[in-house]
Each structure stands twice: as C-alpha cells, then as structure tokens.
Design a protein around this nucleic acid. Structure first.
Length: 238
DNA sequence: TCATTAAATTGTT
DNA sequence: AACAATTTAATGA
C-alpha cells in the first residue's frame, strides 16, 4: 500500500501484530476512543532494501514509523548528488511536519535493509491531533527534538575529523527519544553506516576501531554496541 | 543436534 | 575496488 519499489506500488499492507504494536512509542499515550481509532487505522508493510517508503513530491498519505529495520532520509537527487540527512532507527516516526500541513513529501525515505514500516493515515493523524492530548504531546515533543537534531547536524557537517563524524552520527541514531527501542545495541553494518555518514566503508571501519579503542563502542558482527552514548554525542578525540 | 555449505560482513591492501 | 578471513544463517542427515 505505501511501499514502492521504483515506481511500482506493491500492495502488501496488513494489520500490525501485538508484538509490532509494542514497538510504537506513542500508542501508550492514547486512551479510550483515540486508542481504538489508532489501532483500527494502523497498517504495516514490508520494505526490501532499496525500496522507497515515500518519495519527494508525492502527496502525503501516511504518517510513517519504523518498527524494525533501518531507513535513511535523503534529499531529492534529481538535481544533484543524493545527500543523506539522517537515519531512522526502529521506534522512530517521521514526516509529521509535512503531514501537519498536508503538503508533499520534501524528501525520500529509503530502506537500507529489509524493514517493517508502520503507517497511520493522514485523516486519523488529524483526528488524533484534534482529540488526544497525549498524542499532541508526543508530536510536539518529537518536533522539538527534531529541531534540535537539525541544529546539531549543522555542527556535525563542519567536523573535519571522520572519526568524530561517525561518532556523532551514531549518537543521532541512538537518540533515546526518537529511537526508544534501540537499547544499547545497534544493528547496522559498516556498509550501511558508510552510506549514512557519507564516507567510504574503509574509513568508517577505521573510525569505528578508533571509537572502540576509546571504549565508546564495541564492534560486533553485523552491528555494534554503544558503551558511552555521552562520549559519542559530545566527546573529543586527542 | 551436529556437520557442511552458502551468504553476509569484516578486515586489509 | 578487490580480496581474504571471519561470522552467521541455512540445509539436511
């Protein structure tokens, strides 16, 4: 329903299971009718690596969240090279800005690996905004945090040290509020991280070893473990 | 459950 | 970019 490969739409949306619902961080904030409406309207769909969840210029149909997998948010690459803005880890929801204004999507969301996407239709989103204080609180908090993210991203872009850029990007992926479900371990390959940060895999590999030597992370097969989130977010090297 | 094989990921040049 | 080494996943007895 809402996952497209190239231009073909694949129709495979279904109702979320209980386990998948547990991965939706704003659901506990809803009570009564609001909760019922949300449960009734929520859909989930699979996205293969490389699939687009939403594309630049398309009309807004859903507010999206990531249940499992990894996504990246990029700009429109029709007039230049693609630039990755940020990664989305499980538990993260995105697009509320454009959903609020009923505009077109201003970016692409692409799956970096097989992912499970949840979608809330815009009309349900609107209704919840009008009727649920808990929902408003979540969205407002989310907007505020995202603003902080973009300000921080400008600092990260200025960093000359690849090691620090990798560190800050990891910290962003681990953001506890936008990604509440990533407790301690982040399953991301060095190749994926390279795409995300905009460095070669070799350089990312080297950076990760530096960070590991510092005791900030521990490299594991197919992912890594964050040992010192505070250092990744603000720590200095040398 | 274990051994074998294929696939994915990491480490190096 | 290519290659080798390592780890995981899949398969079948």
């Amino acid at each position: 329903m809402f996952v497209a490969r190239r231009s073909a739409i694949r129709e495979r949306a279904r109702r979320p299971t209980d386990a998948e619902l547990d991965g939706i961080p704003w659901l506990p904030a809803l009570v009564g009718e609001a909760r019922e409406r949300a449960l009734d309207a929520l859909q989930v769909g699979e996205a293969e690596a490389g699939d687009y969840v939403c594309r630049f210029g398309r009309p807004v149909t859903f507010w999206f969240g990531l249940v499992d997998g990894l996504l990246k948010m990029t700009n429109d690459d029709s007039s230049g090279p693609a630039i990755t803005f940020t990664g989305v880890a499980p538990g993260g929801w995105f697009g509320e800005g454009t959903v609020l204004k009923h505009e077109q999507y201003r970016y692409n969301i692409q799956a970096l690996r097989r992912s499970l996407i949840a979608g809330l239709p815009v009309d349900t989103f609107d209704w919840l905004l009008d009727h649920s204080i808990g929902f408003n609180r979540f969205v407002m908090h989310q907007l505020n945090e995202r603003l902080g993210q973009f300000i921080a991203a400008r600092e990260v872009d200025r960093l000359t040290s690849p090691d620090l850029r990798v560190a800050r990007n990891l910290a962003a992926l681990f953001h506890p509020l936008l990604s509440p479900n990533v407790g301690g371990i982040l399953r991301i390959t060095q190749q994926e991280l390279a795409y995300l940060v905009g460095l070669s895999r070799q350089r990312v590999n080297e950076a990760l070893r530096t960070l590991q030597a510092r005791g900030w992370i521990r490299i594991e097969y197919g992912g890594l473990r964050v040992l010192d989130l505070q250092a990744l977010r603000a720590g200095e090297l040398d």
